[in-house]
Simulated assay, not measured.
Amino acid sequence: MTKREDQTILLTGVTGQVGFELARSLQGLGKVVALDRDRLDLGDLKQVRRVVREVKPGLIVNPAAHTAVDKAETDVEAALRLNAEAPGVLAEEAKRLGAALVHYSTDYVFDGTKSGAYVETDAVNPQNVYGKSKLAGEQAIAASGCAHLIFRTSWVYGTRGKNFLLTMLRLGADRDELSVVADQFGAPTWANTIAALSANVLAQAPVVREGDWWQRHSGIYHLTASGVTSWHGFAEAIFEFSDLAKKPLVKPIQASAYPTPAARPGNSRMSNEKLADTFGVRAPDWREALGLSMAAR
């Protein structure tokens, strides 16, 4: 039987928020080959196939994506290539190798009109190019027939890169007052939380796909922090945990007062019950995770 330390894990997007954390959390689950864009450009589909065939991983973990939501509205081709076509190629190569694929998707596959938390079986209806491209990626992976786990997450932030947390801290240091949307709701999810729970799930998987574990578990799972807030509530909590000498006043506004090129769902709440019931893992409350992330800065 193949030992866990003999398993090769190909990790994409290692310089991104989630990829950076995964490079650490996946240690101990195999030999991690962590590649940045210079070594694996998902926009080059021929390179993607070549690299996967050279590395011959038993597991591919793909957090890389085109995440510029507003830019995607005019950069449709790039969004589709990175978020739909590249995951499809990774899935095809995983199937050819007999490997498994872990991929990350988004709350933006939903239209945000449901009153409660979305579950995995709810109808999808993305309202922007980014959401449509991510949904196409999910569908391409499922169509490939490869062993896979797709984790849908939401409102991802971290202590590096570009995200709401760092934007608020930067603006808050220079301004006395900020206006933040208060009628969109979701669960701010720390990149470290995503990586830690992913590793916890993967530690339960067999190193080689013996028996029917992957057949029974392949599919879509929602993976977000617990609890719910608005962007306004998230901003207030950020400043509450921050060490800014003078903290700005955070004024609530309606989303209609802050128009963006890409439509955002009003409700991004997603239920984690399937994840908890299947793998026995449950994400921390978003405020608890935020406090830990701020302490780690």
Rank of each mutant, 00 (worst) to 15 (best):
V52I: 08
V32S: 09
A65L: 00
V181W: 03
I150M: 13
N62V: 02
L171C: 05
I9A: 08
I220F: 12
Q204G: 04
P261Y: 02
S242G: 06
Y104Q: 11
M1L: 13
S154I: 11
L35E: 05
E138Y: 09
A68I: 03
L35K: 04
A295C: 07
N125W: 13
W286C: 09
A182E: 03
L35T: 06
L29C: 15
H66C: 04
V228H: 04
T74R: 14
K56A: 11
M294W: 01
S226Y: 05
L290R: 09
L275K: 01
P206V: 07
A100F: 00
T229Q: 00
A257M: 14
L223D: 08
P248L: 10
L42Y: 03
V207T: 13
V250D: 04
K46L: 13
V250G: 04
R53A: 15
S115M: 12
A245S: 09
D285V: 09
V129Q: 02
H103S: 07
D122Y: 04
P261C: 05
S179P: 05
G58H: 03
D122L: 12
V129C: 02
K114R: 15
A199K: 13
P126T: 08
P265V: 05
A143S: 13
V14C: 15
D107M: 07
Y104I: 14
E21S: 10
R96G: 07
G30M: 03
R53S: 15
P206W: 02
G98Q: 06
L171Q: 09
R216W: 00
W155L: 13
D183A: 12
A91T: 01
S133V: 12
A100Q: 00
V156F: 06
W286N: 08
G30Q: 01
A225F: 02
A191N: 04
Q17A: 13
V250F: 01
S218L: 03
